[in-house]
Simulated scan of single mutants.
Amino acid sequence: MKTWKRTSAVAAVAIMASAALAACGDAPEKSADKKSDFLPCILSDAGGFDDKSFNQLSYEGVKDAAKELNSDYKEFESKNENDYAPALDQFVNQGCDAIVTVGFALSAATVESAKANPDIEYILIDDAADNDFDGKKDADNIKPILYDTAQAAFLAGYAAADYTKTGVVGTYGGQPFPTVTIFMDGFKQGVDYYAKEKGKSVKLVGWEGNDKGVFTGGFDANEKATNTAKQILDQNADVILPVGGPIYQGALTAIKDSGKDVAMIGVDADFYETDPTTRDLIFTSILKNMKTSTIEAVVAAGNDKFDPEAYIGTLENDGVGIAPFHNFESKISPDLQGELDTVKAGIIDGSIPVSSYLTK
């Protein structure tokens, strides 16, 4: 019995010493495992988080940022514009520390909420938070995240002009917001640049510039989206660029109904990856690196390093770009990729100017 007691006492001392060492040596690991009380929240526009486009990318960015910060997050998927203000009020009442709002349609509601809650940090995707159009942000606690997609769309326009067999390419949008028409502007400039450089005639239908173009009037994948795409295809376009989240689904239907050999260009995300049903038709996609920029903004806020200055994604900082040609790789000119690399370098160094509402 005495031996057992002595052994037990020694073991007890060893356990206490081990516990003391663990308290010192393992403290950082335990601290790292501790749940953060920082709470990021994200509000979609009416397109929803499964739009295969900018809502989805931003949502994935918030989820990954929350994982990196070891925090929870909250989400609200809007059904229509009437959801925006109430959802933001709900986020405020739930104690959100950073609120991500996705899309230009949420700009006014975001500004109003930000002004009423200066201690909350807001991250507005795809809008400058300048509802007064005076060139200044309307609330100091908003970080606008913007993308000069005209630069990437220029490359897509150049590629489409090189690929077309009919000599006609087309585009249409949801509504004539700057973040929609910026794609169409860049696409037109790329088509025009190709035609001038190559001395070839390539016609663009659906967009003349200066807000003159074809639009569905919304961002739903409805009959209007299909009929609008058919309108473009009926003008002999064999490459089509739908700009406006889910409206591309109308183009898919129109292409299949036409029985023609038509290639489609995606926007925001690489549609080949986000929507496998497009793989036989997707030529390339005009990319916004929204997921990465959202992660960076949310993580900075979670680490008390929130920077309210606007971020603008460009070709130079990899904020925008175009996706691979995937199944069309064997169908494009063998010289096209090299030419695109040269054009991209020219856009970056300024020798090939690309104008957009962000550069005016």
Rank of each mutant, 00 (worst) to 15 (best):
Y357W: 10
D275Q: 15
Y311E: 10
N141T: 10
P308S: 05
S258Q: 13
D185F: 02
A269Y: 08
Q56Y: 06
F177T: 07
S8I: 09
A108V: 13
D280W: 00
F219M: 04
P40W: 00
S258G: 15
M16Y: 02
L340E: 07
Y122W: 10
K30V: 08
S8Q: 13
D132T: 12
D211V: 02
A65K: 03
G244K: 01
V92K: 14
F328Y: 15
A109C: 13
Y158W: 15
L88N: 02
G321L: 13
N289Q: 09
F271I: 03
D138H: 07
A32M: 10
T171A: 14
F154I: 12
D318M: 12
F54V: 09
E329W: 00
N141W: 01
L124D: 09
V92G: 05
V202F: 01
E339P: 11
D349W: 00
L106A: 12
V13E: 05
I347K: 04
L315W: 03
F306D: 12
T171V: 14
D138G: 04
A153S: 15
Q56V: 12
S18I: 15
P353F: 08
L315Y: 02
F104C: 11
A139Q: 09
Q337D: 11
Y272L: 12
G190T: 10
D280Q: 13
M184N: 13
F38C: 11
D162H: 07
S356F: 02
I240R: 01
A87H: 03
V111S: 08
F104M: 12
V320N: 01
Y122L: 06
Y73Q: 12
F38D: 12
F325M: 15
A32N: 03
D26A: 10
T3A: 14
G170C: 08
E112P: 00
